[in-house]
Write a protein that binds this DNA or RNA. Sequence first.
DNA 1: TTGTATGCGTTATCAG
DNA 2: CTGATAACGCATACAA
Lengths: 358, 358
Amino acid sequence: MITIKDMAEMLGISTTTVSNVIHGKTSEVSQKTVERVEKILEEYEYVPNISARSLTQNSSKIIGVAFKCRKDKYINLFTDPFFGELIGALEAEIRARGYFMMTYTSNDISEIIRNVLTWNVDGLILVGMLHDDFIRIKSRYKNPTVLIDSYAPREIMNYVNVGLEDEEGAYAITRYLLKMGHRKIAFLADNMEGADYTRYLGYQRALADSGLEMEEENLLIFHPGTVERESSLRELYYRCKNYTAFMCCSDYYAVLLMNYFMDRGIRIPEDLSITGFDNNLMSRVVRPALTTVGQDVTKKGRLAVEYLLKMIDGIEPAEWDVKLPTELVIRDSVRAVGQAAESGGEMPDGEERESRAV
Amino acid sequence: MITIKDMAEMLGISTTTVSNVIHGKTSEVSQKTVERVEKILEEYEYVPNISARSLTQNSSKIIGVAFKCRKDKYINLFTDPFFGELIGALEAEIRARGYFMMTYTSNDISEIIRNVLTWNVDGLILVGMLHDDFIRIKSRYKNPTVLIDSYAPREIMNYVNVGLEDEEGAYAITRYLLKMGHRKIAFLADNMEGADYTRYLGYQRALADSGLEMEEENLLIFHPGTVERESSLRELYYRCKNYTAFMCCSDYYAVLLMNYFMDRGIRIPEDLSITGFDNNLMSRVVRPALTTVGQDVTKKGRLAVEYLLKMIDGIEPAEWDVKLPTELVIRDSVRAVGQAAESGGEMPDGEERESRAV
DNA sequence: TTGTATGCGTTATCAG
DNA sequence: CTGATAACGCATACAA
């Protein structure tokens, strides 16, 4: 590893001059020196030492990306296609902009804080954080920060949240189910805060707009990590006769249910309709293909980086709460029932079915 | 951000003493001073500046993880559940050992080299590298390096490869198909090098052990990225009558085929048996659930880090070519045909079917 | 037991 | 146009 000092000595000039050439400040250097320096730069394949640069610049060129995860989901977090795509998008955009990505996955906020401070990262992207987590981080880390999919209150300034139109997405798919004639629609989630709560709001509004009342018994709320248990699934299996459709808050749960039910003789969608949320790889791969609410995860990642870098450059973002649109993705897991079926079960509002492909 | 110097001044002592306390060299410091320093350390929540530390130690505590990807797969790489799980496992292990992970995803090797050198990473984990890539990287980067799933020749020393018993895995699943009475077994892959070639070898050996000849027409080799094209799928659809089973080199291709065929009226496994490779999320989620070859991706990631850190600590690894075992995962995508069917189609060798769950 | 001095590689200031 | 020189934060050899 050759250093600036090495090269300066070899050429018998000062480190300043070499540094100037490296940074393209050629107006301050004679043409001849520039050429000599550039030659040796090439020859020895000089690569700057970022640690040293960070020290003088007080900037690391690192974007920290911190994922808060449940303890039991530790290793598996990125098995979830959503997180996989997100991290891929973040990495691509961060590197395209000349920064480096350092990821921390932990359920221990103070560990995240330590890492972020120790590396003096120029900016921070936070995924899966709750309100309190964010407050704690912000109290120690002062650089620009972007949240992804958080529903933190707006008391704290100097942050941007990049999220999803959860309410509208849930509204759209519930409305679709209603148009297909469904009246007993179960709502399945594993919590009632943040995104899932907002989705619940959309679900409820759609019902109300159709003159339907929210019924307590249609709300199927489990604790995180418990839906996949055999006992939960069995319970859902017994109760599913009460509904004609399940609206699930994630593709994962939808697929889980669908397979459990199908393996036990229930036909989807003939006997029961099911919808998901996210438009994951899974929802495409499964048969019947899942009707779901789509989001552009790649765009979400790209936008998060874009906003963050703007803030790093000292530009105040125009928006503080960016919400990406959702899209109703109609596939094969919902069928028309009752009146809607008799009238031919045609698509409402001219929405078109997606052509099938993995 | 408080520094050692700040604290030394506040206490009226030297930076050396503070530094010693921080590093637990308390034998060299009086009990009283230790306490004073520790108090201020806590109070001001001191966090070391790694850039500065890297500079003096000539070690960054960073493990670089570089993924080589096809240009068109750029962003989507981690959508693949395999890479998702792998990166999760790597990150967890790296951090548990007190290091930091920096990821680079690129199809440009020189970019990867630049990044690795610029950060002076202590060790490097390489995924998806071809032989030439590895040679190039090694010519400039001298620190310990671990390959994952590479089939590079052994000329270069100072590296460990963590891979899979591809040959045995392919042998096992082909043998299983043979026992189930299949004779016309197509082999589907998108290349004929590295892992896929080794799998081909296993496939061939199983046929030979059953006294069967490899037939040219049973080899379905496409170019990378072309299998998913409509034209390729159509071709496979037309040709599939010639076979009773497809052995695919990845779960992804198996699921792709299965859905394409099923959507066109072919029943799986009644009309056609299909097997995959990897035991991905997808293979579990799909119906019929996929019979496949399983591997422990999390363990693979953990082992890679383990070997790398050993080398960083100056310990010569006991093995240079670690191959993790595979496991035959029997689910529902293969049925018994011919004689095997008549004799009841029972499982060979007492292998048991896995109970179904997502 | 504690302190001084030096160097790691880079950049920036300022004087020549 | 060029070059000393100091500074970033930390660790360590050596001196006291």
